[in-house]
Amino acid sequence: MSENDAGEARDGEGRQPPDAWLAQRVQAGESAAFEELARRYLRPVYAVVGSLLRERADVEDAAQETFLRALDHIRTFDASRPFAPWLYTIARNTARNRRKAASRHRSEPVGSVVVAGDDPDPEQRTEQAEIRSLVATALDELPDQQRTAFRMFDIEDYSAQEIATLMGINAGTVRAHVHHARRALRERLGPLLGPGADQ
């Protein structure tokens, strides 16, 4: 396969090449294979680091750094094992390292942007921003795996199976993480939710 057709590679039935095959091409330094893998996993990686970091600039940097670190260690990747959990581990560790240093930087938090036109009333908009801030703080207190599963399921709209594949766990565990996260958040935000907050 030449340098520029890894992304176009399809078998006779039009299926995309498997991750392991692309990873092996990346081990040989093929740019097109790397681009194809990055295209597949850019959004999930952003979602993972976005679940662990609040600052938008940190999320951008950590997501890019995840792929560069993966590239630095690609020769240690065992192609007989799934690629996604390997990349997820790098993303999680990169975000954790960033989080340690995050207190030094203050910029626009992820999700703090209120979309213009959603709610024209300034008072309500301020209230929404405060609620979002409370939710973000409550999310920070969840264990990392719960937070990632919750974010990807409830915010990014990934399926439990997609999340499970990425995290290297089974779908039932993902649902359990989401269950515990929702319950913890509802307990924390009970007064905001009003009667029946535990439902």
Partner: peptide
């Protein structure tokens, strides 16, 4: 939780 309370998504949405 109500969608408007949650952080903005970065992915498929």
């Amino acid at each position: 939780l109500p969608r408007e309370w949650l952080p903005q998504p970065v992915g498929p949405a």
